[in-house]
Computed example of a mutant assay.
Amino acid sequence: MLEFERHRPRLFALAYRMLGSAAEAEDAVQETYLRWHGTDQTEIRNIEAWLTTVLVNQCRTWLDSARARRETYVGPWLPEPVPTGHGELGPLESAEQRDLVSMAFLALAERLSPTERAVFVLREAFGYAHREIADMLGITESNAQQVYRRAAHRVQEEKPRFDTAPAHARELVEKFLGAAQSGDIAALESMFSADIVAVADGGSKVNAAKRPIVGVSQVARYLLGLFGRIPSFGADVSIVVEEVNAAPAFVVRSGETVLGTVSVGFTGESIASLHLVVNPDKLAYFQRDDQKFADETAG
């Protein structure tokens, strides 16, 4: 048990990057633990490699079935937001590490096949050699290299470049929040890139835009409409800028209940994308992390 717990944070970080779902990542880690518990551990020569192999292949299987589920999902599907201010997803010190857990990248990664996603995540986020990846996935080393090149090409072609430094990005997000709260549509529009897109995920639980909102004036009007509804949630509603998926984001709460997150993607000084998650099922991990941090602080 203690040996497995030592690997749990890394396994969760890997599963989340593979699945884009914190809840499913926790389930994948638990499934890996059950396999570990039911195996003769004295026969395992490399524990990290064994656990990683079991986990990543579990995630590949789940991604196959997830594709079918997401075809019937109500409205756009977005990854589950994860607070990262306390090391929840491991080291995120470089721009590349932050990019690989951004909402924009995780949404893009849905377009990769399960094997492409596994190879890319293992190589880019965790630094495994192609030989190691091939052994984990049951493919040849040359095949692993080919899959990696194909996945990297797709990601490079389609991935937005969010090249704003974290400290400056926070300043811009706070400025953006101030404009939205004050209803300053001109200020909002001046911060947007010409091709800005806003995507909202409410699933079947919360009313949200069923299609992406595109364009400066359309997104500005959409946001002001959302902020105009906030007082209806009560006097205890708060909107705070916090680190979510390694970038500044709005977190909306009513008392201690998380109502939604708004992740902001930048290109230079301009806001290029907004990802709004209001489906309560997708906020459950965030809510538990809130409570865990509160308990640790109180203790």
Score class of each variant (00 low, 15 high):
E71H: 06
T115A: 12
A68L: 13
L92W: 02
H130W: 06
A144F: 01
P79H: 04
S142Y: 11
E71N: 10
G127C: 01
P76G: 10
E43G: 07
G127F: 00
E132C: 03
P81F: 12
S102R: 05
L106S: 02
E43N: 07
T140A: 04
P91F: 12
P76Y: 13
N57R: 15
R117C: 09
R123G: 05
L92T: 02
A125D: 10
Q145L: 08
L122S: 01
L122R: 01
P76M: 07
A66E: 15
L122A: 03
L108H: 04
D99K: 15
A104Q: 05
P79Y: 14
L55A: 00
E43M: 08
A134D: 01
Q41S: 12
L89V: 11
G85S: 02
Q145E: 14
Y148H: 15
I44L: 11
G127R: 02
A134P: 04
M103D: 11
L137Q: 00
E141A: 08
T84H: 00
P83G: 11
R70D: 05
E116K: 10
W62R: 14
L92H: 04
R117Y: 08
D99N: 11
G75Q: 13
Q145G: 12
I133F: 01
M136V: 02
S102P: 04
N143R: 14
Y73K: 02
T53C: 01
F126S: 06
S102M: 03
G138Y: 02
A134L: 01
I47R: 05
E110K: 09
D135Q: 06
L122P: 04
F105C: 02
A95H: 12
L63N: 10
I139C: 06
C59M: 06
R98E: 08
F126L: 08
A125T: 09
A109L: 06
A49F: 05
Y148R: 05
W50G: 00
P83L: 13
G87P: 09
D40L: 09
E96Q: 14
L51E: 00
Q146I: 08
T84F: 01
A68W: 08
E80M: 02
S113N: 10
Y73E: 07
L92P: 02
N46W: 12
Q41R: 15
T53P: 00
Y128N: 03
I133M: 00
G87W: 03
M136Q: 01
Q145P: 06
E141S: 08
I47K: 07
S142D: 14
F105S: 03
E96C: 05
W62Q: 15
E96D: 12
Y148I: 04
L55H: 01
R67H: 12
G127V: 06
H130D: 12
R60C: 13
G85T: 03
Q146M: 07
I139R: 03
W62L: 11
V147F: 04
S113F: 09
N46F: 12
L78R: 09
A49K: 10
H86L: 11
F120H: 06
R149W: 08
